[in-house]
Structures are given as C-alpha cells and as structure tokens.
Design a protein around this nucleic acid. Sequence first.
RNA 1: CGGGACGUGGCUCAGCCUGGUAGAGCACUCGCUUGGGGUGCGAGGGGUCGGCAGUUCAAAUCUGCCCGUCCCGACCA
Length: 596
Amino acid sequence: MHHWSKLFIPTLREAPADAEVASHKLLLRAGYVRQLSAGVYSYLFLGQRCLNKILAITRDEMDRIAQEFLLPALHPRELWEESGRWTGMGQNMFRLQDRKGAWLALGMTHEEVMTDIARHELRSYKQLPQIWYQIQTKFRDEPRPKSGLLRVRQFLMKDSYSFDLDEAGLDASYRKHEGTYHAIFRRCGLQVIAVEADSGAMGGSQSQEFMVYSEAGEDVVASCAACGYAANLEKATSRVGPIDELAPTGDGRPELIHTPGKGAIADVSEFLGISPAHDIKTVAYMALRGQKSSRPASTAEQSGGAWQPVAVFLRGDHSVNETKLLNLLGARELRPMQAEELEQFFRAPAGFLGPIGVEPAKTLLAGDALNVILDCALEDRKNMICGANRLDYHYRNVTPGRDFKGTRTADIRNIIAGEGCPQCGAALKVAKAIEIAHIFKLGYKYTSSMGARVLDPNGKEVTPIMGSYGIGMERILTAAIEQNNDSNGFWMPRSIAPFDVVVTPTNMADATLAATALKVAQQLEDAGFDVLLDDRGERAGVKFKDADLVGIPYRVNVGKKAVEGLLELITRSTMASQDVEISRVAALLAEATQPG
RNA sequence: CGGGACGUGGCUCAGCCUGGUAGAGCACUCGCUUGGGGUGCGAGGGGUCGGCAGUUCAAAUCUGCCCGUCCCGACCA
C-alpha cells in the first residue's frame, strides 16, 4: 500500500503552455513526466510505475516466443559502416568521439549489433530459428521532436530480431510476432489495428504497423470495414469510380483555350465550369537518386548534379504520394522544381504545365531526360484539360495515351476517403493514427552485407534470413491516454495503471474516517489490488480533483456514510458511483476489473 | 532544414508599442479558519526579465547576433 502523503506526485492545476496534445498536457499535469529538453523526458514515480507495468506485460508475452538480451547503446562506427547505414542514417544518428578520437554512435536500432552476434555465433541450421529481443533505450536525433512523448529523441523500444533458414521460417517468426503483438496490446487495453506499411529505411519486403486511432497521431490509415483491408496511406491503394467524361469539341483533338491568370486547378475548373477530376495536375520534382533513407542530402550531393527531373501527371483532385513515388523511382529524396528548372524542362511557368510536348525519358532515372510518371487513374480517360506549357493557355480534348505518353504509369497518388477498397470495392475510411509498433521482413539485407552464414542440412553455406520487430513502449502509454481522457484527466486500463484503486478519505481530521480508510485500503490490498491511500490532509475537493487527474481507474470514497458501513465506488471512465458495504468492496471491485 | 510563434519567481500570464530599475493569480512557508469537487482571511519567502553585444544619463522595454522551447511542413517506435 502506498500513502499519498509520503509520495512525490506533483500534479499541476494548469498545463504548461508548451504542451498541445492531450496526452502531453495530462502526463505533465498528472506528475508522470517532466521535460528535460526537446524530446527528452524524465519519468517520475507514477510514470515509471505505469511504464513498468507495460514492460512486464511485454516481457511476459515476448518470453513465450523469444529470449531476452540486453545490447549496448554505444556502437562502434565500423559496425554501421558494414551495413552501409553509418552514412545511410545520416543526421538522425547521434554520434560522438571517444578520447582517442574514434567515432561511436548511440544506437537508434539494433540490426547491426544483433547480426554481429549472429554471424559470430550461429554456425548450423540446427541452431535456427532464433528470436532475440531486448527492451532498451533508443536514441534518434529527430528533426522535430513533438507532441510530448509521441515523438522523442530518447525512448524505450522493445526490439526483436529473428534469424531463420528460409522464407518459410521467416514467415513463421513474423506471424509469431504478429500474434504476440496483438496479445500485448490487448492486455494493455488498447484498440489496435494492424496495417500494411512501407518499409522505409529498414529495408525489406513485407511490413506491418500496429496503429491506434487518434487525432494526435502522425500517420494516416485507410481501412475497409467490409473486408478488413487496412493500410498506411503511404501504401494504400484504391479503386477509383468512373468519371463522366467531357464531350469533345471540334475535331476531338487537343485544342488551345485561353485561360488568362487561371493557374490553380480550382481557378481553371471554375473558369471552365468543369470538375477538378477533368483536369490533369502537373507536379514537377527533382529527385535524388539512391536508397531511400532518413538522410537529408548533403550540400555536395545537392550541387553535384545527382538530381534528376521528374514530372508527375495525375487527376486534378488527386495528390502525389511521395513515398510511393520515391519507391517507384528508387530515389532517396524529392524536392519541388524551382522556376528556372520549370523553364528548362517545360519552357513554361507553374500553373500552366502539362504533358503535351514534353519528351519523356525512355527508362527511369537513366539519363538527364525528364522522367514522366503518369498516375494510373489517368488510364482510359479522355477529353481532359491540361496546362499547355504556355502562359495563360490550357488544352482541352486531351486523351492520355493518344496525346502524350509517360516513362512509366503507376499508382503514385494518395487515396481519398470514400474510394473503393482494392480488395472488395466497399468505401474506404481514412483516419489519423499513432504508430505504436512495426514489424518487418528484412530478408537478407543485414545477414548478407555483414556476412552471417550457416551450414544447411546439405552442408552448404547459406545466409540466414532476418526479421525485425519493434514496439515503442512510451507510445503504449501515450496512446492509452489519448484513447481515455476528458477535461479533468485520464483513466488507464487497469493492467497498466500505476494503481488499481485510490482510497480517498474525505476528512483526515476525522480519526474514525482515517482509520476506516486505512482498514479499507488494507482490505483491498489483501485482495490483490494495487492500492493508493490518499491520506493527505487536503480537503475532499482537492483529493477528488487529483484522483480524477492521475489515471487510476477506480476510486473508493470513505466519507460521511462510512458510519453506516457504506463506501462509494467510483469508476473513473464513466464517473459512475455506487454505494457499497465495506465488507463487499473488494469483491465488487474484483468483479468490475474482470477482463472482458 | 524551410515557414511561424514565444522566452518575465515552480505554473499560467500582465508589463514592452510610448525606456525611468518588476507585478497579478495559482503554488510554497507561518497563523487562524474551513472540512464532499482545487475553503476564506492575514502575514511572509522567492525573479541577474533566456544569453551576449550595442544604442542611451538610464534597457524587461529599442537594435543586432546567439541559445532554447513550441507549432506547421519533409522523417520514424
């Protein structure tokens, strides 16, 4: 049993002005955390207690499929050079030098270290499969830490790594993690959806993210209620409905029309009385060749002429999905074309760009020619409007395929809510979400580049195949608060709450009440609950406000009615209150906290 | 990194425009009071006004540079 009067629980009446999202404000107000600097937080008593419960659940589930390790946070540069990520991770990696001048990195993920162990120790297929995990601090020099604990520069990750002999083995390890992750999040009381994801800087083939819907989230998820399809917007595809095409004019061939000052899609559509879906949007980029990563281009590369011109044409009401585009191009980075570049490749100003007359490159990023990418939603369309590459002019009667061609046609647009599910055609929903975990089928990227080899049953040397799997521990906490809060505070699921119940005597000056409260708290503790006794000499109102704030799911008031042997049991999520006999409170609480 | 905002006791903020040496509420300490939704009264402690430089007789206030934090964009658990 913990006595509030002896604890350090610095609750705040007002949230610091820096805090914007609910979980950030409430974590500060409830005394869970304090900020040290941008994206770096200290966990105080309640925060650490809560995190410990999350860690315990995670360990309990992970131990069923994997073995716990603890790897260093300090990594030698050479290790990261072997995988190519010393430069590949760029600015996001914290680097430092030791007294001899040797470079070290603070670990932002542990594929390299795990693979180093694997290559030194694994010799035979008989040792496979292996799944190794750890719960450890990761360091990432984020360009923009934000939203309290949602995006930070130092955080706890449960990361695991699987080594298998073949793809079937990797499938099994991947599926084990999928199941275990669902179990962890269920036990943490989170509503989680698994979605198809882009692999990003990790590399590899298949990957899934585990998302919690929240307006505070930084990701966008497309999902289908009918068939269960769900994907990150970066990856989501859709079926677009048919469009009523415009009637051709004249001989049906492209025809110049004067559109003075009408550069923006909205202006053109209004001017011509058409829908933006009849217009062709032009988006012009310069793309930097190379593997996609979090690395911003260095000045040398920017001036070194490695940038290639890319023109994207898509429906006027669609937007470019830059992740899809980068993956298609095999490029690392995109930036918008500048006015001089537009002039060079289109001989026209922004607002009046179009596909007619441009000479597309034969193959992607092969030479200096313009790479023309057509979005697949332009296929089978006709009589569209597009910029004429001439100030104040557009074309009408434009039919893709007939009037212009691209280097490549591909899906490079963001889907829009309401479009058809790619699997079943039902209307897709689009909503923001917090990514709390990500699992990857890495393939051979690290085992191959770092030289891990085992002998297979035929005595032949083979490269083991790898998967990696991460959970952001603080994000479980943050997501739980985002899912369960009101203006007075928040309530954690019992499994991860710092305490199950707070016992609140309304007046400590009343010796009978104080004694009763102590007795009740002891009773609850004996029944197996994590009990916080609010024995502070504060007024009842103060204690109630604090109790509502700090995330404890149940409260037992010991007040006036205690002389009649009655207590109040308050459920924080609903604020429902019921009178309970002292002797029955433990049993009732046990009933209330039954899972399911 | 690009764009925007802010930086004044622990917290929320006023004062800055129009320079004259710092103020409120909450919190904290003490006393009394009160005792079921942040009690009331009184007395107190606590601030090199983010830093440096400049202008000026005089700078929280004006100017420049720097640092820090937050928000919007490009990245990730």
